[in-house]
Design a protein around this nucleic acid. Structure first.
Lengths: 231, 231
DNA sequence: TAAATAATGTGAATATATTCACAGTCAAAT
DNA sequence: ATTTGACTGTGAATATATTCACATTATTTA
C-alpha cells in the first residue's frame, strides 16, 4: 500500500466514471478536496468489512472483489469487477460501518474521496445526484439477477457463467489467468474448493476448456453458453 | 383493481415515506401531478416483469411480494414487505422495462406517480435526492445480506429466519396467517412445495410451531433464533 | 350442493453437492 | 537448495434437498 498525494488529483485525471464526467472544474475541486490516491498490491484489502465508513472509494484501475463473511462464517464473493468503478458507495450512505469488504485481485490504484464533498455535490448538483441514483439502481437490478441466477442454477451452470463473465467482461479474451485461488473461485460461485476442481476436470475432459494452473483457455464458448443457460 | 383519482391526492395524504416527508406543499404538487391511487385485491399484480417502466409506485398499505422469473423459469420471491413503501424504483432509473414483478399478497392501496415529477425533484431538491440515495443504498445493503444468507444457510435455517421476519416485521405477533401458498413459501426461501411441508412437519413435531393451514403460531422463538443463526 | 380446480401431505427413489482424509504440487523465504 | 506453508487434486462416504407418484383436503365455481 503506497500513498500518493497530489495537489489537484482529479482535475487532470483521465480516468473518470459516468457520474463524475459532467462535473465542472470547480465541482471537481470540491469533490477532490482531501482526496488521496493509493496503490494496492494484489491481495491487499481496500475496504474492510466492519470498519467505519469514511470515504467514497474510486478504483481507477485493477481487478477487485467485493466480498463478505456470511452467517455461516463462510466468505462469499458478491462481485468481481475492474476499474474504473466506485466501490463501497451504498455503505457510506446506508451505514456507519462497511457491510462488505473490497480486496484487490490485481495491482490496483484507488482514490479515497472525502464523503462531505460528495454529499455536497449530491445536494447541489441535480445531474450528479441523478447519475448516482442511476448507478445505484443499475447495481441493484444487476444484483437481483445475479442473486437469483446463483440461487437457481446448478453449479456447473454458474461456473460456466463465471467463465463467460471473465472472458467477455474482465479480460476480453478467450484465454486468461484467473486471479482467484480455487477456494476463492468456490466463494464466487457458491461452493467448495473440491467441487471447483471437479467441475474443472469434467469441463477439461469434455474439451470445453484447457486449464493449466490459473491459466484458462476457453475451447468451446457455444457449449459454455448452453450449459450456463440450461441452468 | 379499482382506480380512484383525486384532485390533490398527496397533499392531504397521511401516509408518507421518509423520502417524501420533507417536501413542501408546492413540491408535493409537482410530485403528485398526474398521480393515481389504485386498489388491488390479494393476488393482483401491481407491476409486471417485462413491461415498460412508466411510474414510480408507492404502496400506501398492504403486503406485497417482489418476485421474478429466474433463469430456470422458476419464480423467486426476493422480498416481502408491507406499505408504506416505494416499489419498483430501481427499474425506473436503470431500465426501460421492469426486471421484476410486484404482486399484492393482501388487499393493497397503491399510488402510481409520474416519473417526470419525481425526476424533477431529484434534480432540484438536493435533500430529496439524498433521501432517495439513502433509501436505495439501504436496500442494496439489505439485499446483499439476504442474498448471502439464502445462499449459505440450509433450508431449515432460512425457513426459521422467514418465520421470525413475518413475526417481527410484518405482523408483529407470534401468531399470524401467512399470505403465501406452500409453493410461494418455497419460492421465498428457495425450495419446493414438498420441502416446505416437510420442514413444517418437523418443526411441528419438535413443538417449535403450531400450524393449521395458513395459520402459524410460534411456540418457541428462542429455538427459531438458534436454528436461524446456526445456518 | 356438486363438481371442478387448486392446494397440501407423504414416502421412496434419485440427484446434487459436501465433507473428509490423504496425497501431491507449487511458491515464497531462508 | 531446502524447508515451510499455502494451494490443489481425488475418491469414498455422507448429507442435503429434489423429484415423482399418489392420496388427501380446501376452495372456487357452476
Amino acid at each position: 500500500m503506497r500513498e500518493i498525494i497530489k495537489d489537484n488529483p482529479c482535475k487532470d485525471c483521465t480516468v473518470k466514471s459516468s457520474t463524475v464526467y459532467n462535473l465542472s472544474d470547480d465541482e471537481l475541486e470540491v469533490l477532490c478536496n482531501n482526496s488521496t490516491e493509493i496503490q494496492f498490491q494484489k491481495g491487499e484489502r481496500i475496504i474492510k468489512q466492519g470498519t467505519f465508513t469514511q470515504n467514497i472509494v474510486f478504483v481507477k484501475s485493477g481487478i477487485i472483489k467485493m466480498h463478505l463473511t456470511g452467517p455461516v462464517r463462510k466468505d462469499e464473493i458478491l462481485e468481481i469487477n475492474n476499474g474504473p468503478i466506485f466501490v463501497g458507495v451504498p455503505d457510506v450512505f446506508a451505514n456507519k460501518v462497511h457491510s462488505y469488504s473490497v480486496t484487490a485481485l490485481s495491482d490496483t490504484t484507488a482514490c479515497f474521496i472525502d464523503y462531505s464533498g460528495y454529499k455536497y455535490l449530491v445536494q447541489n448538483n441535480g445531474k450528479f445526484a441523478l447519475e448516482i441514483i442511476k448507478t445505484l439502481s443499475e447495481s441493484i437490478v444487476t444484483h437481483y439477477q445475479r442473486c437469483v441466477s446463483k440461487l437457481q442454477k446448478q453449479l456447473t451452470a454458474t461456473f460456466a457463467e463465471a467463465l463467460l463473465y471473465f472472458s467477455d467482461y474482465i479480460f476480453e479474451s478467450d484465454e486468461f489467468n484467473i486471479p482467484l485461488t480455487r477456494v476463492e473461485f468456490g466463494e464466487y460461485i457458491g461452493t467448495t474448493r473440491e467441487t471447483v476442481t471437479k467441475i474443472i476436470s469434467d469441463f477439461t475432459k469434455d474439451h470445453i476448456i484447457e486449464v493449466n494452473g490459473k491459466n484458462i483457455r476457453i475451447l468451446n464458448k457455444d457449449i459454455l453458453h448452453k450449459i450456463s443457460n440450461a441452468g
